[in-house]
Computed example of a mutant assay.
Amino acid sequence: MTDETFDSSERKRLEKQYNEVTVLAGGLAHEVRNPLSTISMNLELLLEELEAFDSPAAHRMLQKVKTIQTQCDNLDQVLEAFLQFTRAGELHLERMNLEDVMNQFLEFYKAEAEEHGIDVRPHFQSDIPPVFLDVRLIQQVLTNLVRNAQEAMPSGGLLELQTSCRDNNVVLEIIDTGCGMSPEALDKMFHVFFSTKPAGSGLGLPTVRKIVEAHGGTIDCESELNRGTKFTLVFPIDRADQK
């Protein structure tokens, strides 16, 4: 057996192992979510009953129930992020023009950008060849990266979205003028469950990377504190267009 054959066999074994763990973890998340929904529903009913009583004891109980309800909501968000992560490799590909996908996203994001003082400047290279994309998952990638950029610019700022064609690949760059990341955060940003946000799940960027890599692409990041951040996503061009 050659080294190449061994590497291929080992990679397939690890991929199978990873897929099994992902399926099990996704099933576990669903099992946790079902009773959590029941708990949340009963908390809502309990809140309605407590609000009918006007006493110091009822007010204290009401605050405690609201605290539990908040934690249930947080747990539900973590479970949703985890389920998105487990499903990120399941692609339904269509031959698409990336500019069309970007314009669709920007139309959706326009009002939110204005609300947060974000100046969005798209720069799309014309005549870029199509690529195979899962539109729903790419929209998820864009939402995650743009929202991260928005959070890095709490007082507003500039967000540039650029597309180009390089070395038989379509390249998308997302550049913000936000607070940037430290070298330590930049090094760990794609690690599962790592987050610099107090309430972050630590699954957003790992999910983004998983989606991009499932498309046969790559994602890189450059960032500097107080200077901003640039994400570079690279997708392979539909090879049929080059024949």
Score class of each variant (00 low, 15 high):
152 A>W: 07
94 E>D: 10
96 M>H: 01
126 S>H: 06
63 Q>T: 12
148 N>E: 12
57 A>S: 14
68 I>H: 08
75 L>H: 03
95 R>P: 10
137 L>P: 08
149 A>W: 06
114 E>C: 02
63 Q>F: 06
50 L>S: 07
119 D>L: 13
110 K>V: 05
131 V>T: 08
70 T>D: 15
85 F>S: 09
67 T>G: 06
143 T>F: 12
142 L>Q: 14
156 G>Y: 05
123 H>Q: 14
68 I>S: 11
155 S>D: 15
83 L>I: 00
105 F>G: 00
105 F>T: 03
67 T>K: 12
62 L>T: 08
117 G>W: 04
111 A>E: 15
50 L>K: 15
106 L>H: 06
58 A>H: 03
130 P>E: 08
89 G>H: 04
128 I>L: 11
101 V>R: 00
152 A>E: 08
129 P>R: 06
54 D>M: 07
80 E>H: 10
50 L>C: 09
129 P>C: 07
124 F>I: 01
51 E>N: 10
79 L>D: 01
54 D>G: 01
115 E>P: 11
92 H>D: 11
142 L>W: 02
110 K>T: 03
103 N>A: 03
60 R>H: 12
118 I>M: 10
131 V>F: 06
143 T>S: 15
93 L>R: 10
52 A>I: 10
56 P>C: 08
66 K>A: 09
129 P>F: 05
61 M>F: 07
77 Q>W: 03
51 E>W: 02
75 L>A: 04
100 D>R: 09
71 Q>K: 09
61 M>C: 05
84 Q>I: 04
88 A>P: 01
135 V>R: 15
117 G>C: 07
137 L>R: 04
90 E>F: 06
76 D>V: 10
91 L>Q: 09
104 Q>M: 13
143 T>N: 15
134 D>A: 12
61 M>Q: 13
95 R>D: 03
57 A>M: 07
107 E>C: 14
109 Y>F: 07
68 I>A: 13
88 A>K: 04
59 H>D: 14
99 E>I: 02
147 R>P: 02
129 P>K: 13
123 H>N: 15
87 R>L: 08
56 P>H: 12
62 L>D: 00
82 F>H: 09
107 E>M: 08
56 P>I: 02
51 E>Q: 15
72 C>P: 04
63 Q>K: 11
52 A>F: 11
158 L>S: 05
144 N>M: 00
70 T>W: 09
116 H>D: 15
74 N>D: 10
133 L>E: 11
92 H>K: 14
